[in-house]
Computed example of a mutant assay.
Amino acid sequence: MELIQEHSDVSAYLAANEAVDHGHPLVQETAEALWATTGDAYSYAKVAFEFVRDTVPHSADSGDPRVSWRASDVLATRNGICYAKSHALAALLRAKGIPTALCYQRLAEDDGSGAVVHGLVAVLLPGEDRWARQDPRGNKPGVDARFALDREQLAFPVRPELGEIDYPELYAAPHPAVLKALRESADRPELWRNLPTGL
């Protein structure tokens, strides 16, 4: 799949915004601690991915009712759904000068009741000529997402026969429908009712 940049200027994918608040002290502190264990962009990106994937439980898995959406809040509460975890990973990577985009998939509900939009990121590492999508959702039985540049190993490979879609757009900021659902939901049950079904 060919990914489509929303902005021609790659610097847009380094910018801070309300959700990807990489100027926040907690994001900066976390990025510095992770960088200290690596020292180059590739190994840092992998460690940051694994940190968000493994140490911030997806709230559907943990049962946490809180709704976090700012990267700094995700890191502070160690809680969030796919969108929030993507914001946290994007913030950690942008904090160290790695262009990171937000991207989305439309996935079928397991019970066949409809569809839901899933969030992930794409990174552009130094020396690479293409974006590589990464999914920090968090692994569980049946989900085995891993950091990779040569091939995708996402949480949910799309099933076109079920109407699932890989949206090709690379967003510099969260899609407005995603941000609206996160900001207007008091708890996770309400968020589940507000999740967008398509973009």
Rank of each mutant, 00 (worst) to 15 (best):
A76R: 11
R146A: 15
R146S: 14
P136R: 02
E128Y: 12
C82S: 07
F49N: 13
N139D: 06
L162S: 09
S43H: 10
H87K: 01
L170A: 07
S113G: 05
D21G: 09
V158C: 11
F49C: 14
Y104M: 07
Y167R: 05
E29D: 13
P141W: 10
T30P: 02
E6C: 12
H175V: 01
R188D: 07
Y167I: 06
K46W: 15
G63D: 11
L3T: 01
Q28C: 03
Q134L: 15
K46D: 11
L162D: 11
K180T: 14
A122Y: 02
R94K: 08
H22D: 00
L93Y: 06
I81M: 06
T30M: 00
P168H: 10
P141K: 13
S43P: 06
L120D: 05
G63R: 04
D129I: 02
D129A: 15
E128I: 00
Q153W: 08
E161V: 01
E164Y: 10
A122I: 05
R133D: 00
W35S: 06
G198E: 15
F51V: 01
R193W: 07
A76N: 01
Q28L: 11
N194L: 06
G97S: 09
S11A: 07
E161A: 14
S59I: 12
Q28K: 15
P196Y: 03
G80K: 02
L102H: 10
P176C: 06
R151I: 15
R94S: 09
L179V: 01
I165R: 15
K46S: 13
M1F: 13
L162T: 08
Y13V: 02
S11G: 05
Y13K: 03
A36N: 05
Y83L: 14
G39T: 14
V158T: 01
R188V: 09
S185P: 08
L120Y: 07
H175R: 01
G114R: 08
S62E: 04
T197A: 08
A60L: 14
W192D: 15
D166C: 10
D111S: 10
I81K: 05
R159S: 03
Y44Q: 06
S113A: 04
L125P: 13
G142I: 08
D111Y: 01
A12T: 11
P25D: 12
R183K: 15
C82N: 01
A148G: 07
V20Q: 14
C82M: 00
V178N: 12
R193K: 13
Y104Q: 12
L162P: 01
A12Y: 12
Y42M: 07
A88T: 11
A45S: 12
L107H: 06
V117P: 05
P174Q: 09
Y13D: 03
R137Q: 06
S113C: 00
V67S: 06
D54G: 03
A48H: 00
W35D: 04
G112N: 04
P174R: 02
G63H: 04
L14M: 05
D187C: 08
A122V: 04
V158F: 04
R66T: 08
D150V: 03
L120N: 00
R66P: 08
H58Q: 11
K140L: 15
T100A: 15
